[in-house]
Amino acid sequence: MIPDSAPRLADAVREATAVLAAAGVPSPKVDAELLAGHLLGVGPGRVRAMVLGDTPAPAGYAELVAERAQRIPLQHITGVAHFRYLELEVGPGVFIPRPETESVVQLVIDWLKDRGSAHPKVVDLGTGSGAIAGSVAHEVPGAEVHAVEFSEFAHAWAARNLLPLGVRLVRGDLRDALPEHNGTFDVVVSNPPYIPAEAVPNEPEVALHDPPEALYGGGADGMELPAAAAASAARLLVPGGYFVMEHAEVQAGWIAAMLERSGLWSSVTTHLDLNGRERATSAVRRPAPTRSDERMSQ
């Protein structure tokens, strides 16, 4: 709705950009445009075209800008997070998916494409909003995709996003989930919580609004849940199956060493995100040793 006495959209977006910049919002102009587009029902490209004319600002725009200036996440205000080709429903109680996680999805898709499996079986451990599982289901025709989420609130958001895509969503702990599927998955992917216990995120949007259970990985180093995700992946994968896990840049060496030490994995590889940071590690599940292998090693 646009009131008759509304200021011009161009002036409103300019003022909103200044307000958000003063509040420390990292991308003030983009957020100002996205909030306007949310109320107008158009994309950012259309907003940029509209500000060149005399289009009036929509009703309620200043109020949404004021909310964002309080560092309430943009996605909580609009109720939507864009991730690859998906528009995900999000809100309080669920981790907002990050753009860097899109590269983790690409690793899964590329691996499956290289192997040409007609009906691969994939599971996302700790799915949150369902961004990873939903993207795989959307972009890999014929894939049987499962997703596991422990949080009651996140599970509810994931259900909204994943059930329409045919993903098999269960509420459970990534430590022991899906025992009935042991040794049957072609791919296990996970973006588990991994922040150390004493590390408080700098961004208010994260520290105040992302649920703590989606951030902190357990233990002083934050590595309890990543280690558990790797153990579950080893249990769930077929021999030769693929595991990929997102992590913090500073954890890449530790995770690669953990996988190598276990003796369960080959082809351990660290991957960079679009910003050149060590964002994910992948590995291939080794076959279980045979009795003759065990005798030879003695």
Rank of each mutant, 00 (worst) to 15 (best):
P3C: 02
D4V: 09
P7I: 07
A10W: 08
A22K: 13
E33G: 01
L35E: 06
G37W: 03
H38W: 13
L40A: 12
G41M: 12
V42H: 09
G45E: 11
L52V: 15
D54G: 04
A57V: 00
Y61K: 03
A66R: 12
E67W: 02
I77T: 08
V80Q: 09
E87K: 10
V90R: 05
G93Q: 08
R98K: 04
E102R: 07
S103C: 14
V105Q: 05
Q106H: 13
V108D: 05
D110G: 07
W111F: 12
V122K: 03
V123A: 07
L125K: 10
G126V: 00
G128F: 14
G130F: 01
A131D: 12
S135V: 01
S135D: 01
E144Y: 06
E144N: 14
V145M: 07
H146P: 02
A147Q: 14
V148N: 14
A154S: 13
A159F: 11
A159G: 11
R160S: 10
L163Q: 15
L163C: 11
L169W: 10
V170L: 14
L178Y: 06
E180R: 08
T184V: 00
I195R: 04
I195N: 01
A199M: 11
E203T: 05
H209T: 12
H209P: 10
P211G: 12
P212E: 13
A220Q: 15
M223E: 11
L225R: 13
A228Q: 09
L236G: 06
V238D: 00
G241L: 14
Y242T: 08
I255M: 13
S262V: 11
G263M: 01
L264W: 05
T270C: 08
D273S: 03
L274H: 14
G276N: 03
G276I: 05
R277G: 00
E278Q: 11
A283G: 12
V284Y: 07
V284A: 04
A288R: 08
P289M: 02
R291P: 08
D293I: 00
M296I: 01
